[in-house]
Simulated assay, not measured.
Amino acid sequence: MGRVVLVTGVARWLGGRFARRMQEEAGVDRVVGVDVVEPEHSLGGAEFVQADIRLPQIAKVLAETRADTVVHMDLAGAALGSLPTGRHDAGGMSRASVKETNVIGTLQLLGACQRAPTVRRLVVKSTTSVYGSAPRDPAVVTETTPSRALPSGGFAKDAVEVEGYVRGFARRRPDVAVCVLRFAHVLGSRTDSPLAEYFALPVLPTVLGYDPRLQFVHEDDAVEALRLGACEPRRGTLNSGTFNVAGAGVLLLSQCARRLGRPTVPLLLPALTWSGSALRGLGLTDFSPEQIRLLTHGRVVDTTQMRETLGFHPAFSTAEAFGEFARGHGPGLLPPGALARTVDRLAAALPRRGRAES
């Protein structure tokens, strides 16, 4: 009998894509998708089980399916934008409800996995937001770098708690291979996240005096990294442990704005915080304190373990992932081509002026 893979969070676009991809994997006989509502997109040949991981019924699902691999993707990024249409009223979903899904849901799932003798592999989709963003952070953060300022709230704080519970599970079930994938911000043509909502604004508010470095992961690469974590390791690789996952290279926030063709409005930090609260109140984007810190200090992670231990080499760089996202969201108020030509003309003119004055 082949392997049985259970995937949580399949009502989200990325969870559905991963469920479809695992059906093509050699040795996988059955893929079971779990979510609180039926997905609006196709799961291919995967079975769908409507269940809430916050409730004890998830243990019954594990027992009945006899899943040997569990891929946990049911972590909500925010009250806005991270949930599929029809799953919840995103504008009305409280922070308490999001936290309950993330933390209580994960605890219930881990408890069910601990009692399920068939489970042999657990993959958890986490985030590089667990490192926080602080002014004195190292230029590049590794998986073992201690955080100087742990996230104080929101999805990032939930992810820190979730990872702590996963480490506890790994100690209690040493026979289970546990893989935690800390993704940089996932972008693509269908991405829906708080950062994607920020980049979709017609004008981008920024913090005066700061131009943070950012990393991204293409949604295709995110699916492939999850697949590697869920499959038997190839020779010379190991898919248990904690891994940063990001495309090669970095982009400055100003470069992102130019590629989108969107003007920026530099604001003092208190003004940006007020603007973020106003945008969040209008339901335009989830401008959380964690996102404001990211847009102030940025975050860059080391991906050596991803390449050398997990054996994963992303097909898209950070710039390429952002480029596809930008193409999918159309030109902004300042068409990128025209903006680039203007910047080039200004750059070419400045040296000539310098030579003329000398």
Rank of each mutant, 00 (worst) to 15 (best):
G311D: 10
A156I: 06
R172A: 15
G92T: 05
V180I: 15
P336Y: 11
L253Q: 14
L310A: 12
A321P: 04
L122R: 04
T101P: 00
E38S: 02
V186N: 07
G44H: 05
G15F: 05
D286Y: 13
A11L: 00
G33M: 03
L109W: 12
A321I: 05
P146R: 13
A271V: 15
S193Y: 06
V4G: 08
D137L: 11
T303Y: 00
G328I: 11
F243N: 04
H88E: 05
G354M: 13
T128H: 12
L284G: 09
M22T: 03
A116Q: 04
A90F: 06
V4I: 12
L6C: 11
F322H: 03
N102L: 04
E161Q: 14
L109C: 15
A51I: 00
L282A: 15
L228W: 05
T8P: 03
F216W: 13
G27N: 05
H72W: 03
S133I: 09
T318Y: 01
A63K: 08
L333C: 10
E320H: 11
P138G: 02
E320W: 09
R87Q: 00
L269W: 14
D344I: 10
R115S: 14
Q108K: 14
A326E: 06
V223R: 07
I58L: 13
S94R: 09
A116S: 03
L284S: 09
V301K: 00
P56A: 09
P117E: 15
R54V: 03
A51Y: 02
A134Q: 12
V119E: 05
V207W: 08
T296S: 14
V49P: 02
T273N: 07
D286G: 05
G276D: 02
A149W: 11
G311Q: 11
A326F: 03
G16F: 07
V103E: 13
L122D: 08
L83P: 05
A59Y: 04
R115Y: 05
P202N: 15
A177I: 06
S193I: 12
R190W: 00
R167K: 13
G111T: 10
T101L: 15
V124L: 15
K157I: 06
L75E: 00
D302M: 04
D74A: 11
